[in-house]
């Protein structure tokens, strides 16, 4: 049996609340274990080397979307990134760009997503008169339900936002996460909003017509959501709205 290798983590460190602190990269070394993920490694570093190290994990199973960070240049979920995937044993961790930095690798995606939801009204808007919870529910096409679930798998990790060149240049751009959610409600037969209603929200440079189609979102999405298809779908939908007016 070969002895386990030593891997090195070069980690962005900065505490924005400390007026004397400056952003820097700090290198740590750790002995690799079989099946080690960045989640496991970061916790060991905190427990054994530097207890001030800040990062966010919740489910550690790729479900909750808390732990997105830039790993060797690519934004992705840290909890399910295996250290074994890096043959040279060098791993560089940076916080996700495009979000408020809390400290080190921790960023405020929660605030961003809540504001986005409020701005785009990302909730189902059904016919208020249509509900009696004691009676048989309204039927829905089984294929539609399956399709909606596929689009709803977004975990709001923020990877698409950090991978988006448009978003980096234009802060008000809604990003792939916003458009994916709009597409999800637009397709939902229970939602009473029309294409025209959605046009007012995303039929502009901050929405579908601002996208430069570089599709970093599609490449980096950890849930493999069909961003390209949905952005194209929404563009056609929004364009039809103008034509039909």
């Amino acid at each position: 049996m070969t002895s386990p290798r030593t891997i090195s983590f070069e980690i962005f460190r900065y505490d924005p609340q400390d007026p004397n602190d400056k952003p820097k990269m700090v290198t740590y070394e750790i002995t690799e274990a079989p099946g080690m993920t960045v989640f496991i490694a970061l916790n060991l570093l905190r427990e054994q080397q530097d207890p001030s190290l800040q990062f966010d994990f919740v489910c550690r199973a790729g479900i909750c979307g808390s732990c997105a960070m830039v790993i060797n240049g690519k934004p992705t979920l840290a909890c399910r990134t295996l250290t074994a995937n890096f043959p040279d044993g060098k791993i560089k961790l940076m916080p996700l760009p495009g979000f408020e930095l809390i400290g080190d690798l921790s960023v405020n995606t929660g605030k961003f997503m809540r504001e986005l939801a409020e701005r785009l009204q990302l909730w189902l808007q059904p016919d208020a008169n249509d509900i009696d919870i004691h009676r048989l529910e309204s039927p829905m096409d089984p294929a539609e339900a399956a399709k909606l679930y596929e689009l709803e798998r977004c975990v709001e990790c923020g990877v698409c936002v950090s991978a988006c060149a448009t978003k980096q240049m234009k802060d008000s751009f809604v990003g792939a996460v916003g458009m994916m959610k709009i597409a999800r409600f637009e397709m939902d037969s229970r939602d009473t909003r029309s294409a025209e209603d959605f046009y007012h929200v995303i039929g502009n440079q901050d929405g579908v017509f601002g996208c430069m189609t570089l599709l970093g979102c599609q490449d980096a999405c950890p849930k493999d959501l069909p961003h390209m298809q949905q952005i194209a779908y929404l563009r056609r939908k929004m364009a039809q709205t103008i034509v039909s007016c």
């Binding site: 004691h134 529910e137 399956a146 939902d188």
Partner: peptide, 18 residues
Amino acid sequence: PKAVRELANWGVPWSRIT
């Protein structure tokens, strides 16, 4: 059953019967 039906109206895409 009431909670399931309420959630359908809040947006849950429950798997449906064919």
